[in-house]
Design a binder for these strands. Sequence first.
DNA 1: CATGAATGAGAATTCATTCAT
DNA 2: GATGAATGAATTCTCATTCAT
Lengths: 210, 210, 210, 210
Amino acid sequence: MSGTGTARGRIDKRQAILDAAFTVFAREGYAQAGVDVIAAEAGVAKATVYSHYGDKESLFRETVSASADRALAENLAVVERLTGAGEDLRATLETVGSKLLECYCADRSWALRRLLAAETGQFPDLLDVIHTRAADRVAEALADRLARLTVSGHLRTADPLLAADQFFALLSGPADKRARLGTRRTPDAELRAIAEAAVDTFLKAFGAQG
Amino acid sequence: MSGTGTARGRIDKRQAILDAAFTVFAREGYAQAGVDVIAAEAGVAKATVYSHYGDKESLFRETVSASADRALAENLAVVERLTGAGEDLRATLETVGSKLLECYCADRSWALRRLLAAETGQFPDLLDVIHTRAADRVAEALADRLARLTVSGHLRTADPLLAADQFFALLSGPADKRARLGTRRTPDAELRAIAEAAVDTFLKAFGAQG
Amino acid sequence: MSGTGTARGRIDKRQAILDAAFTVFAREGYAQAGVDVIAAEAGVAKATVYSHYGDKESLFRETVSASADRALAENLAVVERLTGAGEDLRATLETVGSKLLECYCADRSWALRRLLAAETGQFPDLLDVIHTRAADRVAEALADRLARLTVSGHLRTADPLLAADQFFALLSGPADKRARLGTRRTPDAELRAIAEAAVDTFLKAFGAQG
Amino acid sequence: MSGTGTARGRIDKRQAILDAAFTVFAREGYAQAGVDVIAAEAGVAKATVYSHYGDKESLFRETVSASADRALAENLAVVERLTGAGEDLRATLETVGSKLLECYCADRSWALRRLLAAETGQFPDLLDVIHTRAADRVAEALADRLARLTVSGHLRTADPLLAADQFFALLSGPADKRARLGTRRTPDAELRAIAEAAVDTFLKAFGAQG
DNA sequence: CATGAATGAGAATTCATTCAT
DNA sequence: GATGAATGAATTCTCATTCAT
């Protein structure tokens, strides 16, 4: 087992650097973030960061990618909940809506979105990667569920992808307004209220019994 | 009128610097933007930028403020159009929605939003200023109009401000998805389609004849 | 008399600039002193300073020269007092010594000496000018008086210039130590004590009745 | 001994920077001295200067402190020579006086004094440090010796510290006059003459057989 | 003549990156 | 493989000086 500690150590160091990088990039932005600072936050020497990730730009890409993968997983897990079943559609949508909002409003999510917005000019490819690999897939997954609910007669959506976008918009739009780009943490109760209002509007528009 | 050329010159220089600053900040971000580059873009010497605006930070603040003021004015002008009249409410909403989306998707608007997102950490006060001075006022103005339309029996909104937020969300949310943080210009026709879909959903939920 | 005010004005302005320059140069040193600051202190525009004195270096030279001339005049006036007469030689020497020390320890004198020390490297000629035009002439004048006192039998100085230098050294050396390069103002009483001690030693060495 | 070259290298670099800094500060003054120039003189990169000393001000302080420590050591070593013994007091005093003058007139000493005079306004604390840590201690040491010589009957000094100050003044005062703030190197022979004259006057005033 | 504005050259300081150990 | 030290390139800001009015 003597080597395990070291092997772990190496992996842990990689991860520690990635975590530190996210923290620092999120706090200071790409350009302002110092590699020294990241190294210090990770508890390693600056040169170690370089030996692991090559240069600042690569480190940034990997940091953002890892963060996006994580966000994707969280969001998909929530959407999965939207099974066709649910005796009470409204309650189910409200729960899913709330959970989506919680993901959306998590500190890490805001940090990631701010980072993307900030560095779109310098790293245009990151946006594509993340949209195609994460955001769009969540929307598609959501559209799938809405389509099934339409087929099963619980909803009436002519264009499920549009409906999914609008559902998400009804959630995120009002939440955006309160969150001030993530600088204010919105209480869960408020998120819940936003979700209920969103579902209410959504069902008025797309509910089967309209 | 003697001396007008020169007097204008001073003012023009201030304005040229501000325009150049917006261009460069928008393209490169606050930290990456070089004052040299801004000066060159404005056609003045670096020191002139400093003599006018003191330091880079102040220049940034003034640039952002001016840009926000301009955006506010444009948005309010659009909302004004939503007069209670309109024989055809749907058509009116669609027009207003389209125009709002055009403002929202203008290059300058995206640039401003990206800049705000990017620099929220370094300039937290800018967000407050802009939200209270611009964004919230547009929402309030929109809510006012919706309230009047409710009073006049054209709409049924229990909470006009919420309805306004949702209306705006139904517009901006789907547009966001296509615009990729402003890196893709969405054709006006597509914006129009988004607006029509938004109005459709909105009227299903809040229309008087529902 | 209408023109007088203006003519005065011009001269006053030159003088105001010179005074301001001395103040600022003395406070901040040549390199650190900003022409803006001097102009502000003088209550004129920066360009006015240039139109009067050409450039910073010339202004510095004139400032230092003027200050040195003034110091020379003050010192010579004191040495004049050392008339051959004086029933009480000791008392006369003590008075002259005190007065010399007061000149020596005046704020302006210290400021001038600090300035000279500071800028000797950049303005080597200033030193020569001042030494030959001021310091040496004071020493010579003092030596003259001591020579006369020797001829009249009041003193025994083999080399009056050496005696003058030593007399001055006995005054300024101990004062230097207390003044900390002019950062501490030494009370007149203390200066008097230094002068008395200096005269005491001087008379023991050069007094006629030894 | 492996690695000595490198380990030495680091220390040597620190020292090389300090030496270069003294040279350049002495030649150009604090404000005019460019860190580039210091770095070039030391044969290192500008950033290396910063990584060792933080900023220009700290570098200046350390440079001056080091120089003052060195001057103190040299002066004390000379004063030590003034042992009570000495069959020939006059010769001993002349030797000590000469040596003190040589220290006093060394290029480094003048440079240090000019630097202190120049930057007293910006760095008032340096003066205090140097006076209490160096100059005063030399004076005290000298006073100690004179006191012993008084006790042993070789001198008559009522106030040994005053006598020490006057002794030093008789040396440095006339030397000051010739050295023109260190811009002229005074030949040792002349210094010797000054010392002899100083001792002559001093012994007339304080000699035991007077 | 006095001025406000404009500027070019320069100076301190920082930081991503590389090397020797 | 991890590190401390060294560096070159960039960047913000200053200031003496000059013009047009």
